[in-house]
Simulated assay, not measured.
Amino acid sequence: MTAPTRRGARAIAHGRHAAGAILAELGKSAADRTGIDAERTLAARPFFDAAFPPGLAAQLPDDATIVCRCEEIVAGTLRTAIRDDARDMNLIRGTLRCGMGACQGRSCAATLARLLMEADPNGTAPPAPFRARPPARPLPLGALANMTGLDSELAQIESLDDKPQAIVGDDAHA
């Protein structure tokens, strides 16, 4: 860490002075503040230790566990796709729709990446994440029907002159 600039050193000194004044007004000393910060930081620790025991995240899901909740894709389906040479997260996304649900991969991307790493233990880098996509949500037809602000003149058909004419008896699709 580099030494603070002259202006930065003044800002740090001013901040410490202000913090000392606030602590003095509360009847606390700077030593009390350190204890309060540590106590406050560690207060939630028992909850996190109980909710997330060590080693829980180290286990990979078994084949029947749902990995992608939005699309209801189980780990076994993903492992089968990976064994069949789908070694890219975007390829799996495109073929199985894993990561294409409402959460856009926020609940399944990490597990899918771990399954890909499980299949290639000698791989040096983790797989590339899903390509970012713009957020999309369904639009009810009623919302389109009730849209305002559209220029009705722009929606009128002016001419069909640019459309190709069908030749009678010349149906290439028959």
Rank of each mutant, 00 (worst) to 15 (best):
A3M: 11
P4N: 08
P4G: 07
R7N: 12
R7G: 09
R7C: 03
G8S: 15
A9M: 11
A11E: 13
A13R: 10
H14W: 11
G15F: 04
G15I: 02
G15Q: 12
H17G: 05
H17E: 09
A19K: 09
G20L: 13
A21P: 03
A21D: 12
A21H: 10
L23I: 07
A24E: 14
E25V: 05
L26I: 06
G27E: 15
K28Q: 12
K28A: 12
S29F: 04
A30M: 10
I36P: 02
R40Q: 13
T41C: 07
R45C: 05
P46D: 03
F47A: 15
F48G: 01
A50Y: 06
A51E: 11
A51W: 09
F52K: 00
P53I: 01
G55F: 00
G55N: 01
G55W: 00
G55H: 00
L56S: 08
Q59I: 09
Q59K: 13
L60S: 08
P61G: 02
P61K: 03
D63Y: 06
A64W: 01
T65Y: 07
I66M: 08
V67H: 02
C68S: 13
C70N: 08
I73R: 00
I73M: 02
A75D: 05
G76I: 11
T77R: 11
L78V: 09
A81T: 06
A81K: 06
A81D: 07
D85M: 05
A86D: 09
D88W: 02
D88F: 05
D88P: 00
M89N: 02
M89G: 01
N90K: 02
N90S: 07
N90T: 06
L91P: 00
L91C: 10
R93P: 01
G94F: 02
G99M: 07
M100E: 13
M100N: 04
Q104T: 08
Q104H: 10
G105D: 06
R106V: 04
S107V: 06
C108V: 03
A109L: 04
A110I: 10
L112C: 12
R114F: 00
R114C: 05
R114W: 03
L115H: 03
L116N: 01
D120F: 01
P121F: 05
N122V: 10
N122A: 12
T124I: 12
T124Y: 08
T124W: 06
P126V: 11
P127K: 03
P127D: 10
F130M: 10
F130G: 00
R131C: 09
R131H: 13
A132T: 13
A132R: 14
R133T: 12
P134N: 10
P134L: 15
P135V: 11
P135F: 05
P135Q: 10
P135I: 03
P135D: 11
L144C: 11
L144W: 08
A145S: 14
A145F: 15
N146V: 11
N146E: 15
T148V: 12
L150W: 09
L150E: 04
D151Q: 06
D151W: 03
S152P: 08
L154Y: 05
L154G: 01
L154E: 07
Q156S: 09
E158A: 15
D161W: 04
D162L: 13
K163D: 05
P164A: 14
Q165G: 03
A166E: 10
A166I: 09
V168L: 14
D170H: 12
D171T: 02
D171E: 11
A172V: 13
A174S: 13
